[in-house]
Amino acid sequence: MSNQSSPTITVNRRESVEWTPGMTVSDLVRHMNYTFPRLVVSINSSVVPYDAYATTEIPEDADVRVIHLMAGG
């Protein structure tokens, strides 16, 4: 999925993900198959409100953190 020549964003300080113009937080969450319902998303250290995932665009080269809050027994 990562590609040296294409623009990218970094997810959770590890994964390089191909960036496309207009890519929203919802797009990224879908692309990563992050199905867990309680995520905390930040773009370049700014937290994105829960109800703004569909409308918040991710800029090229962004440092995106998608934090899954703990769950489990």
């Binding site: 959770n12 300080r13 590890r14 867990f36 953190r65 998608v66 934090i67 899954h68 809050l69 703990m70 769950a71 489990g72 027994g73």
Partner: peptide
């Protein structure tokens, strides 16, 4: 239960 923090979020590098 640290799997998400460690494996998915990479919060414990």
């Amino acid at each position: 239960w640290l799997i998400f923090m460690d494996q998915v979020n990479n919060q414990l590098p």
